[in-house]
Design a protein around this nucleic acid. Structure first.
Lengths: 368, 368
DNA sequence: ATGAAAGCGCTAACAT
DNA sequence: ATGTTAGCGCTTTCAT
């Protein structure tokens, strides 16, 4: 095209004034220094597209050509530029994942469960941590969507209106959206889900304690304001307890390191006018802390105070007595999310919602 | 450009044969449906470049124009395409991080420590898990480099020759390379490092036990073959023990769930001809398992067997007695890596190597 | 303060 | 089996 301009100067101008003649139109090269497909092609004595073809389907180029390309490839140390590839093909390989916290074992294990199958499928994982803040989540969704990910995996089903708009548009534009760690109602937003119902989980905690004869219950919420799933478990716990005629008190753990917070809560529980005989917690850190605190206070667990946690953290199994808890399928959520995601990328039409089990693991803290 | 072709058909051909006349050169549009800068520009009555300018430096466009653009932006729900931006500008915003395992608390916390400051600086985190396999690591490095990341954060300093070549080239091409979780020698490869010396850490474990009078020691390696850092700690432990005239036996934990493996190791230790009085472990899972196993076997800890772990996992602090352990600065490694990385991106010339502390936390398992 | 043209590095479409 | 052309959506350079 440039050649044309130079061969027929003047004639080609579609402006009123002709192009100023002396300007040679040789702009600064903007290349970023890295080896490109053209470099490889030049070294192999072919054109760029042939190398491109070789890389994507080696069978399509002649064996002799392929050999030359292989040589050129290793001689130049070529690393394909993904941005260019994605831009040209419209098919990216990024999966974006958004979790509340990368360090929390439950989400870390989910990501680990997700990463293996994705890697096997040639997909890459872009992650962000929202800190349980849905405003921040919205801005992260916007940023992540800028990479035109094949799929966006997000934690939970509560998002800002702006986030929902983005998610819906992304979904409409062919980006698979999966909400993990929750499973609720009929999937109002039309996104795939992989998780379990937290209200039901809370009810299961209450039922277990009711079955063991407790009639004065308590639920201790997490100090993390944005953890609505813990709150829903609390709602389920309270409603199930009250439906069975028990009294249910609800309190919030003090802020700070959660095991310490759990220790401190014991004092509060014991000081209550209608002192509960059993208590459930938003998570195992609080529950384990309470177990340790109860023992330190000379209480017998479960005789004086029965305890149930959530999460099946490692600590819960190894204290004496062990902490009864709900065991969410942490890894499985990741693995199943990957499965579902890959199925969608391979053309599965239906938006699926997978309801997983969150079994109760009974240990000494309720079953002395 | 297309308009030109249509206005002067024939005249424009630079080939020998003229373009076959009926072909209107109207190729299939390849657009991917999403709102582009042009769409926004059209809605605002300006051209794309003005919108682009507004997004990057709002001050450069006239207030009235800016208002129109803002309106168009929100009306269209525009999400910038990062691939296009990076390709055009040569300045990406991706930081790639490569860890052995996303679920291991030590690495998960490091990533969490990394993610916050990166996000604040407008950078995004692309992650991969190598499974302690340096071959796999090499292929992941290649893949990650395809995104032309601003920085590549990698775990440890042992890589395949191919990986080293990639890292050196990336580094030469302006990609900051940081090895984390290790600090060794004089940084042979010339990459930045943020971590501590594992050999010295192992020596510290031995010294602690020697100081308490132990003369028959053991070190239990992890069953994970690729965890060379644990092996280096073992090397340090063995050499320090032997230098002090102690006998040091070394064994490898059985494969499988590490706490269980730790329990099983106790039997092996007790059956040894020259039965050790103190044992160090590659990690706290093994150490905690051994602590539980020793208690189950009726041994007194630390009188019959003293134990030291590594990692300061949560469990270690809450068993009774607590497990003495080395506490690596998990979060800090991430946070400092981020600092160093941002300094480099802002033009810091010198490749820095940060040596962090890995303090010994003395608990009941050695200090009865 | 705004725009036109060119090009980032690659691949899809259309040749041969 | 290989090449040519155009264009992905953006930013840079140069011009007004």
């Amino acid at each position: 095209m440039l050649a044309v301009t130079l061969r027929h100067p003047g004639k080609l101008s579609i402006r009123e004034k002709p192009v100023s003649e002396p300007t040679p139109l040789v702009r600064q090269r903007r290349g970023h220094g890295r080896t490109t497909l053209r470099d490889v092609a030049a070294a192999a004595g072919v054109t760029a597209i042939t190398v491109s073809r070789y890389l994507r389907s080696p069978g399509q180029v002649a064996p002799a050509t392929a050999a030359g390309i292989r040589q050129a490839l290793s001689a130049t140390g070529y690393v394909p530029n993904k941005q260019a590839g994605v831009l040209a093909s419209g098919r990216g390989s990024i999966v974006a994942a958004l979790v509340p916290n990368l360090a929390h074992s439950i989400f870390a294990e989910t990501l680990q469960g997700l990463s293996r199958p994705l890697e096997a499928a040639g997909l890459e994982l872009l992650v962000a941590a929202s800190g349980y803040d849905i405003e921040r989540e919205e801005s992260q969704i916007r940023t992540l969507l800028g990479w035109a990910p094949r799929a966006l995996v997000i934690t939970g089903r509560h998002h800002t209106p702006g986030a929902l708009k983005l998610l819906r548009e992304a979904h409409a534009g062919g980006c698979t959206v999966i909400e993990m760690w929750d499973h609720h109602g009929r999937g109002e937003q039309g996104f795939a889900q992989v998780g379990f119902n937290h209200r039901a989980a809370g009810q299961a905690m209450a039922r277990h304690l009711l079955d063991r004869g407790h009639r004065r219950l308590a639920y201790v919420d997490s100090a993390v304001a944005g953890d609505y799933r813990a709150r829903e478990r609390g709602d389920g716990f309270v409603s199930a307890g009250q439906a069975a005629g028990a009294t249910v008190q609800r309190l919030t753990a003090p802020a700070g390191e959660p095991i310490t917070a759990g220790r401190e809560v014991v004092g509060v529980l014991m000081a209550m006018p209608d002192r509960p005989t059993a208590c459930a917690f938003a998570n195992d850190h609080l529950g384990c802390g309470a177990l340790l605190g109860a023992q330190a206070a000379g209480l017998r667990v479960p005789q004086d105070l029965a305890l149930v946690g959530f999460g099946d953290f490692e600590l819960a199994a190894h204290l004496a007595p062990g902490l009864t808890t709900l065991a969410p399928p942490r890894q499985e959520i990741g693995a199943r999310t990957a499965e579902l995601l890959l199925a969608q990328l391979h053309g599965a039409a239906r938006v699926q919602r997978l309801k997983l089990e969150c079994p109760l693991v009974v240990r000494g803290s309720t079953a002395g």
